[in-house]
Design a binder for these strands. Sequence first.
DNA 1: GGCATTTATCATGTCTATATGATAAACTTT
DNA 2: AAAGTTTATCATATAGACATGATAAATGCC
Lengths: 140, 140
Amino acid sequence: MWPSSTVQQAISAVLCIAAARGEPVRAGAIADATGAPRNYLSKILHALARAGVLSSERGPRGGFRLAEPANQLTLAAVAEPFERLGQRRCLLGRPTCGDANPCAAHRRWSKVASSLEEYFQTTTIARLLDDASPAGASRA
Amino acid sequence: MWPSSTVQQAISAVLCIAAARGEPVRAGAIADATGAPRNYLSKILHALARAGVLSSERGPRGGFRLAEPANQLTLAAVAEPFERLGQRRCLLGRPTCGDANPCAAHRRWSKVASSLEEYFQTTTIARLLDDASPAGASRA
DNA sequence: GGCATTTATCATGTCTATATGATAAACTTT
DNA sequence: AAAGTTTATCATATAGACATGATAAATGCC
């Protein structure tokens, strides 16, 4: 039901990187900040880089940065490499369930599922950063 | 994110039993109707019986029935033995996250999570049965 | 009581998510 | 070019979800 621990770690890591405002952040620093296991986090970060969410650089002064501005990066993009959000699951698990061929739960459930999906597709990393810091902290 | 396959099978099974209107339904019949694997379904049904959602009877003329009227049985009660709905997960996985100590995502995420939880707590099996059958099919 | 039917329980197996540890490859600095 | 730092990748381990198969226990019918 709720987001997997992998997705939680991915969002936490991206938030941590976004907070650095363009400075590269090393995997070790992220692990320390978020409490995620280092090696597993490495895999998550690598997957995000492959998905085009992060850019990575090796060597000293290396680390991870956002590949696009925080106000254009949605939670859906961060979660997508780890969880198929698009393929919304029928509450009864029927593969043919849809608006045309609804299961018993479809009409009411699809509304809840849509609002969940909309949350991920409209919430940006920048928005979360703003919510976290005191009002007016952004340069607007 | 979405409900697990176990929860899907549980809800499907309970709907199937509710549709029998008090007649006991055998595990084999439910497996045939829902497509769930028989032995695994047995475990699910047994768990639902232990949780007080179903009553079971062995032997010929045995099977499973609802332990309470369909209009008093919520999806939350059906899902609860398999998934901790109550312990709403923080989007970032922070154990201390809450209204008093919110994470960056808390304010917006908690609204979505609440609507999801409300869906499970207010939707009854009777309601799903009504939605599935043509309008006016219930004896109201 | 004996038998067929059905749920209850146990033992086990598979698959995926999660996690760990070691090594390879790339980059920076010197 | 050599050394140090960091990400990339591989091999493996662990836990839990999902599933299978066999056996035990209870119930109704004859």
